[in-house]
């Protein structure tokens, strides 16, 4: 188990020194613009080493006590925050997942579909209205013929 981890560790620290031939794909970086200062380089190399040293002091030599550190409130909070991956999961949950699920849930039945239902209701209303005229009684039918004649002649006169 240890061997591959060791290889990875070394690579992680010193891998930057290996030259990757990407000039053919990406344009060569402009000179001077993206040069990182030597100070930055030093800090970047120093930080992981500092981490190794700290963890040695905590877990290797036990010079520093984990329990004592954890009794501090600030440290505990910081631990929880880091342990939760800088709170990114929570952030995503709040920013994306919950709103998206909410958005999905509010319109499960697809409001667009109501448009077609509206048409069905409209035509059924038309049907109900007209169906009442089919009363079956002869006097009303005669009236409709006579009334229709008058209506048509009037319309013909008006138009």
């Amino acid at each position: 188990m240890a061997a591959p981890l060791l290889v990875l560790m070394v690579l992680a620290l010193a891998g930057g020194l290996i030259h990757v031939p990407t000039e053919s794909v990406f344009a060569a970086p402009g000179h001077g613009e993206h040069q990182v200062s030597t100070l930055m380089h030093s800090i970047m190399i120093a930080v992981p080493l500092l981490g190794i040293a700290l963890s040695y002091l905590f877990y290797g030599s036990r010079t520093l006590s984990v329990e004592r550190l954890m009794s501090n409130n600030v440290a505990r909070g910081l631990h929880r925050f880091w342990f939760a991956g800088w709170g990114f999961d929570g952030l995503y949950r709040r920013l994306f997942i919950t709103p998206y699920l909410w958005l999905a849930a509010i319109n499960k039945r697809d409001v667009v579909d109501t448009a077609s239902e509206f048409l069905v209701i409209l035509s059924e209303a038309g049907n109900a209205m007209l169906a009442r005229s089919q009363s079956g009684s002869l006097r009303w039918y005669i009236l409709s013929v006579v009334g229709g004649t008058v209506l048509l002649i009037t319309l013909g006169g008006v138009l």
């Binding site: 998206y100 699920l101 958005l103 999905a104 849930a105 319109n107 499960k108 697809d110």
Partner: peptide, 11 residues
């Protein structure tokens, strides 16, 4: 694209 993807998730 977006609306139906959203509705799909609720089915």
């Amino acid at each position: 694209i977006l609306y139906c993807a959203k509705v799909a998730l609720a089915q």
